[in-house]
Each structure stands twice: as C-alpha cells, then as structure tokens.
Design a protein around this nucleic acid. Sequence first.
DNA 1: GTTCTAGAAC
DNA 2: GTTCTAGAAC
Length: 263
Amino acid sequence: NGLRHRPTGSMDEGPAKKSPTVSQDLRDLLKTERQTLTIYDAYPKSIFHFLLLPRVKPDSGLTVNDLESLKTLLAGDKTRAKKVIDALNEDARSLRKEIEEEMEKRYGFKWPIWTGFHGAPSMHHLHLHVLSADLCSPKMKNKKHYNSFHPKLGFFLHIEEVLSWFDSDPSYFKTKAALKEKEYEALLKEDLNCWKCESDMKNIPALKTHLQEEWDKEAARGKAKAEKKRKLEEKRKDTNSVQEKAEKEDRVGKRQKIADTSD
DNA sequence: GTTCTAGAAC
DNA sequence: GTTCTAGAAC
C-alpha cells in the first residue's frame, strides 16, 4: 500500500531485515521480540505522523484476520484484545518520547501528540495513529482527511478512550466494540471546524490557512516559553557563581582573620 | 491513497 | 469567470 518501513530504532534507519525461513530459532526470536512495528505514515496529516501495527505473533493465538481492524479484534477474545492494545499503547509511549526529542531538535519546543484509532479505517491490518497535534501538512487535502483526525469529532478514537471501554460494563463495551461503519463514516461528512478554537470554516483552503495561523501562534508561544526557561536557567547559574565567589572570598577572609589573631 | 472532472458555490 | 467539492475510475 505504499507505506515506507520505519524499523524500530532511530528515525533515520534503513530498510527492515529480510525474514529467513521459519525455523525454531525464529519462533523463539518472535516470542521475545517486540510486539509491534512502527512505520511512517506515507501520507502524513501532521508535521509528525506514524503508524504502529501489531505483529502477527504465532504463539499469541491471534491470526491476521483477528488483527484486520479494531472491530475484528474487539469481536474476539477480550483478554487477548486488551493485550494487543496494551502493547501498542506501551510502544506508542516510547515513540512519543522520540517525537518529542525531534520536536525539540527541529523546532526548539514541543507540543501535544495524539494517539488513536480510526473508527472506520480504510487500510487493512489494525493500526494506531501517533501524530503531532497540528494537522498542518500538504497531504491534508479534503474534508474526509481532516475530520478523520479531528480530536473531538468522534471518528478519531483516542487510545485511552478505547482502553476505558474494557473497564466499563459489558453492555457498554459491546455497543462501542460494534464500531458501526455507517455511523463513523457519517462523521466524516460533518461541517469543518477548527479543532483548536472551534470556529467554523467555510472550506478546505480557508481551514488550511487558519490551521497554519494557529500553528504559527503555537510555535511563537512555544519558542517564547523555551526562551524564558533558558534565561531563568542562565540567571540561576549567574546567581550560583556570584554566591560561590562570595563564599570563596568569605573563606579567604576567615583564614586571614585566623592568621591575624594567631600573631 | 490519487487523478480527473462535472457542476455547485461564489 | 474562478474556486471548490465530491464522486467515479484507477
């Protein structure tokens, strides 16, 4: 489907290793190896946009069919489903950490990151989106693209919300787990409104201009905050060195006093 | 997902 | 007349 591999590790690693034929060694390896695969979204809808996919583990009891989507996963064994989502959640946590480092490096500040599933996904095989909270990207081209990531519309299901279904009463879980495609698809047709300030947008070009302005404001705030922190740090260092100097002089003074009185 | 395009909206 | 959307075809 045109997605580029992003093997686990640094952000600039090369292609994944070729799998050898299935041997006992590989089976053993797969038991201990991490449960998920992280890739770049081929059509990023934010400045940072990754996908996390659960690996099909021979010993997990889950088949490629169970892992087709959130819907198919939740239709099966609840305990196994929870394990898969927990594993994705855990790896999303470390991925967010990496993204934050990259935000600091490239932009000098960091901003929120969303983690969630689509209510009615188009790509086969369960995938968790991890994307920066900006929705600024040249690949963001139409209403469907935008609404599918709007954090308050309901199509984008934050992972914490999905996890909360497991702790709710079984009838509620069942209702949510049904993930009715028709209902989710209807959300994609909703009117455009800014996810940040909630103002209505007349069309996609207007929305994109507005999102860019929101992002520019966020960047200005972020950089100002980082600058303030840097200055405070500098001041603290200065105070420390002045204090150290004073203490040093004080010690010299005391020594002098001792020397004077010892005569 | 993209490109093409008819016709709606302005 | 131009801009924009949305559905079909790929």
